[in-house]
């Protein structure tokens, strides 16, 4: 079974790193994973998209074709990728106003606010989002996720990012959507 994630937002939000950690957690669980990206020429502020495909089987095509999960942290990315969702779940930051034309099942969560207020650092929003997605998808155990996060985040920020992961997992748990029951 192939599970596809599309993480979208703005350059500098760290979505690529979140995608890498997601893929590495899957590998630690013995699965195959491919991560791809597309981005504008800007280092900060342009559009940014990371995709992760996870499967028990060989992955022949590396990009998301029909994402099971779309993360949208900005209004722009919600408007660009939301309408492309056929099935699957949209996870959108609660700062983005919802559009009734976008029909896919949508979960609005305070990811950016939780990073700033609960974790205490805005820049951890990517790891909060990672926790949300991993929690919803039932992708890996908490232990595996902690290992994957610790391996990739900058030295000295491990505790902060592990807290962000827990905050994200908490948001997923409180969402009312049973983990991995969406398929």
């Amino acid at each position: 079974m192939r599970t596809e994630f599309r993480l979208s937002g703005s350059g500098g939000q760290g979505l690529l790193l979140a995608g890498i950690v997601l893929a590495e957690a899957a590998i630690l669980e013995g699965k195959n994973a491919v991560q791809t990206q597309s981005y504008g020429p800007e280092a900060r502020g342009g559009s940014s998209k990371a995709e992760v495909v996870i499967s028990e089987d060989e992955i022949d095509y590396p990009k998301a074709t029909d994402p099971d999960y779309l993360l949208a942290l900005t209004a722009d990315s919600y408007k660009t990728y939301g309408p492309l969702m056929k099935g699957g779940l949209i996870v959108v930051d609660s700062s983005v106003s919802l559009d009734s034309e976008i029909k896919a099942r949508t979960l609005s969560l305070p990811i950016l606010a939780a990073a700033a207020d609960t974790v205490g650092k805005k820049v951890t929003a990517n790891i909060v989002a990672l926790g949300v997605l991993a929690g919803l998808a039932g992708l890996a155990t908490r232990g595996t996720l902690r290992k994957a996060v610790t391996a990739r985040v900058p030295k000295g920020t491990e505790e902060l990012n592990l807290k962000a992961l827990d905050v994200g997992l908490g948001l997923a748990a409180q969402s009312g959507i049973p983990s991995a029951s969406l398929k």
Partner: peptide, 9 residues
């Protein structure tokens, strides 16, 4: 670009 930027197991 796809092959070179892609990450896989």
């Amino acid at each position: 670009e796809v092959i070179s930027h892609m990450r896989e197991k």
